[in-house]
Structures are given as C-alpha cells and as structure tokens.
C-alpha cells in the first residue's frame, strides 16, 4: 500500500484554512461565519496529525494538541451560539449587516 505524500495533505489543510478565511470574510450570516471558523480550526488539526505521523512519529505532541483544539472549539462554539441567540433576541436577525450600531 503506497501512502499519500505529506505535500498532498498539507495542500488540503492549507486550502481548507483559506476557504475558511474566505468564508469568514464574505458570508454575512453569523452561523455560517462560525462554520468557517470551524474549518480553520480543522485545517490546523489536519496539519498537526499529518506532521506528527510523517515527520515526528516518536512523540504524540501533535495528536494531543489536536484533542485539545477539538475540545476548545466546542466550548467556543457554545459561547458564540449563546451570544448569537442573545443578538437574535435584540436584533431579530443573525445577519452581521444588521448589527452595525457602532461605526467610525
């Protein structure tokens, strides 16, 4: 069985990172923006696992980091959704364009 080269995996993770960034900058729906942030965090996870398996297989640093990132991403999403619900109560919308009371 021939294994996938590291470069291909890194290409996927980098693409995922920038897709997430693009989504964050172009989408105006807060839930979609939250999904874009999850994409960014998952690209980091892929990076860590790939580096751990291909380059530094001796220790499990990368795998552990991934576990912590997954946990914290869940906590972050929970708080973010709570905030979005509160925003929806006051603004009756989860579009960021509607939440522009403060501007320069």
């Amino acid at each position: 069985m021939s294994s996938v080269p590291l470069e291909h995996i890194l290409f996927v993770s980098t693409a995922l990172f920038f897709i997430g960034m693009y989504g964050l900058f172009t989408r105006r729906n807060l839930i979609t923006m939250l999904m874009s942030i999850e994409l960014i965090l998952n690209s980091v996870n892929i990076n860590f696992v790939a580096f751990n398996k291909y380059l530094w297989p001796g220790k499990l640093d990368g795998i552990f980091f991934t576990l912590f990132i997954i946990t914290i991403a869940a906590a972050e999403a929970a708080v973010a959704i709570a905030i979005i619900i509160n925003l929806y109560r006051s603004h009756h919308s989860i579009d960021v364009e509607d939440a522009t009371e403060m501007k320069y």
Partner: peptide, 24 residues
C-alpha cells in the same frame, strides 16, 4: 450583544491564525 459578537468572532479568528502558526 453586538460588542460580544464582534469580540467572539474576531478572537476566534485570531486564535485560528495563532494555531495555524503553531502547527507550522
């Protein structure tokens, strides 16, 4: 609530960038 939304989105994005840097 608008301020909290801006804070959580921008801090999540910035920690995403920080993490990508850490992974590299």
């Amino acid at each position: 609530s608008e301020a909290a939304m801006k804070l959580i989105i921008s801090s999540a994005f910035s920690s995403g960038m920080l993490l990508f840097g850490i992974s590299l």
